[in-house]
Design a protein around this nucleic acid. Structure first.
Lengths: 142, 142
DNA sequence: CTAGGATCTAGAGCGCACTCTAGATCAAGT
DNA sequence: ACTTGATCTAGAGTGCGCTCTAGATCCTAG
């Protein structure tokens, strides 16, 4: 075990790191960047104690970051959530911006996948030709 | 016009920048990093003259970079292509590694898209509820 | 009581992929 | 000839998102 459980129902920074895949460094960094929604509670000794809600939010953060949302934008989103209800339209706009980015990226990736499949076909063809009849024409590259 | 045509059939660095979407700086950087397949030809005055083959290769580079292939790996791929036929298996392996990365990324993006759609549903619901009957319970965030 | 690991803060450092700067040269239009 | 803009080289600088360091403190197990 790298991280011992804190009071049941809350989590140490190490446990949160295990659960979210973020490093403890990254967790402190996210907090300093104001990416979290509430202030993280502390023990008497000054250690952070994360709640399940904190962890859930961090999971969302991870998904958004993985999909290319810049930290600055995630910070803006956290601010909106922190303000509470009443700004749903702004949240929707932010998410919509990100959705567009995500879809563009999916398209780019799918194009790349096609390119790869095409290239794989070319090289596999070369290999089969090579096995069948020796070297192919060395003047044709790519 | 930001970039005048060179000898027909070849391209100035500015034209290549226009066609590939890379900056002229990035083009010189790619060359220095050995991402290109052949040495780029020069005019008497020392300016680069790219061929259509160079441009095609750069287009592939752009696709691979867009889809997250690190420059170092692209460089390795360029080396293999530069060596000519005979290393198709290594090229296939490299492409396969990248294909896996691309597919993982597509999956991550699709998960994120679902998350967004779910969140959008939540906020849209809030908005409709708000329009219909005023403020919702301010203790439920997210 | 002690040793060990986990955590704390503040801030420096890093890897990546460019991007920009400075100062010179080249080339095309007038 | 002159002006203007594109290009050249070498190398410094930038932005992002962490990652790592140092030195102190906390806490759990033995």
């Amino acid at each position: 075990m790298t991280s011992a459980p804190a009071t049941s129902g809350t989590f140490t920074i190490g446990e949160v790191a295990d659960r979210t895949g973020l490093s403890v460094h990254a967790l402190r960094y996210y907090e300093k960047q104001n990416l979290l929604i509430g202030p993280v509670q502390r023990t008497a000794g000054g250690r952070r104690t994360y709640t399940a809600v904190d962890v859930d939010w961090l999971m969302i953060c991870v998904k958004l970051r993985e999909s290319g949302m810049p930290v600055a934008e995630l910070k803006r989103f956290a601010e909106l959530v922190r303000q509470g209800p009443g700004n749903e339209e702004q949240r929707l706009q932010l998410l919509d911006t990100h959705r567009r980015r995500v879809e563009a990226q999916i398209n780019a990736l799918e194009e790349c996948r096609s390119l790869i499949e095409w290239k794989v076909g070319v090289y596999t063809g070369h290999l089969r030709a090579g096995e069948a009849e020796g070297l192919w024409d060395p003047t044709r590259h790519g």
